[in-house]
């Protein structure tokens, strides 16, 4: 920053007026036009539609050309607060994303620490390449893969595993199961499977940021510890973890701000039999709005979600400022 000031000495002497500066930057305004157009049309214009949240707005209002009926005021919100499926969706959103978040943190940090211990450069590179790979598959592909390998197959007795999905076949062979289980339609199993799918896809990718933090720890610290006679475990506990604690916290907070956003991983993976444990706010919004044609109510749910998100982000921002001196946005 100091550098900057040196270069702009003449500016400090006499700062040009706003008009002069605007003229100076006229081409930049032109360059911003494409950005502004996309931004306004696809992001800000829809915000005007938030008013539908305060109206009765269904297919009937469109076909009869009456337009949204605003006489209900906060009706959609009172309906939402007393609605069982909404409560379930809200709870599932929090539970699924929070547990997933904690698992993500634990797995990624642990694996990052272990990767860091690999001495062989080639080995490290191969491990990283393989672990990052699933991140680049879409949720549709990840869900498709899991559906195939988790299939219960055609033989319900489990005697013949040639037609059973891969995982079921393994579990049957090991004697852990005596009958194939259809994991995806089983309310008890579904969340676990979903966590596993998430970890399979994202754990490797999650380690990158910790690896970057680990590589920036000064080797002097370890040398000093070694001279003091600290073993490997102690070094990890007293040097490594405290050094990356800040990163862990920041990542955690950043993701905490996003916990209401869980959507596509559920959308392509759930089915009606497990709605009770899998339906999240965004999937519920989709079903109410697109399948149920209740546009007003769906917008109200969306708005509720956005407001909760906004609160979470602001909270994260404040915490972030406390921890590292600057906010998250």
């Amino acid at each position: 920053m100091a550098n900057n000031n040196d270069n702009f000495d003449h500016v400090i002497v006499k700062k040009p007026s706003v008009g002069q500066r605007m003229f100076k930057y006229r081409y930049f305004y032109l360059m911003f036009i494409p950005v502004a157009i996309v931004l306004l049309i696809f992001y800000y214009w829809p915000m005007l539609g938030i008013r539908y949240a305060f109206s009765t707005f269904k297919l009937k209002q469109i076909t009869l050309r009456t337009g949204p009926d605003y006489s209900i005021g906060l009706g959609n919100f009172t309906r939402l607060l007393s609605s069982d499926p909404f409560h379930a969706a809200f709870k599932n959103t929090i539970v699924l994303s929070f547990i997933n978040l904690v698992l993500a943190m634990v797995c990624s940090v642990a694996i990052a620490l272990l990767i860091n211990e690999i001495q062989n450069a080639w080995g490290k590179k191969i491990v990283q390449t393989v672990l990052y790979l699933p991140h680049f598959l879409s949720w549709v592909v990840a869900a498709s893969i899991f559906m195939l390998i988790l299939s219960a197959g055609t033989d319900a007795t489990g005697a013949d595993t040639s037609n059973t999905g891969f995982i079921n076949a393994i579990l049957l062979q090991l004697g852990i199961l005596d009958k194939p289980v259809d994991f995806l339609t089983e309310s008890k199993a579904w969340p676990t499977v979903w966590y596993i799918m998430n970890r399979w896809k994202e754990t490797g990718w999650g380690t990158i940021i910790y690896l970057a933090a680990l590589s920036s720890i000064s080797p002097d610290l370890y040398e000093a510890a070694e001279i003091d006679g600290a073993g490997r475990m102690k070094q990890t506990w007293y040097i490594t973890i405290p050094s990356i604690m800040n990163t862990i916290l920041v990542v955690f907070i950043l993701n905490l701000a996003k916990i209401m956003n869980v959507f596509e991983s559920v959308f392509v993976f759930y089915n009606s039999l497990v709605y009770d444990v899998s339906d999240v706010i965004q999937t519920y919004t989709y079903r109410v709005g697109i399948v149920g044609n209740d546009y007003g109510y769906s917008t109200a749910i969306g708005l509720f979600k956005s407001v909760v998100s906004l609160i979470l982000v602001s909270a994260s921002d404040i915490i972030s400022k406390k921890i590292r001196g600057y906010g998250i946005v």
């Binding site: 306004l40 800000y44 214009w45 915000m47 005007l48």
Partner: peptide, 10 residues
């Protein structure tokens, strides 16, 4: 500013 522009647009 955003709201004004969008309203104009819309």
């Amino acid at each position: 500013l955003a709201v004004v522009m969008v309203t104009g647009l819309a």
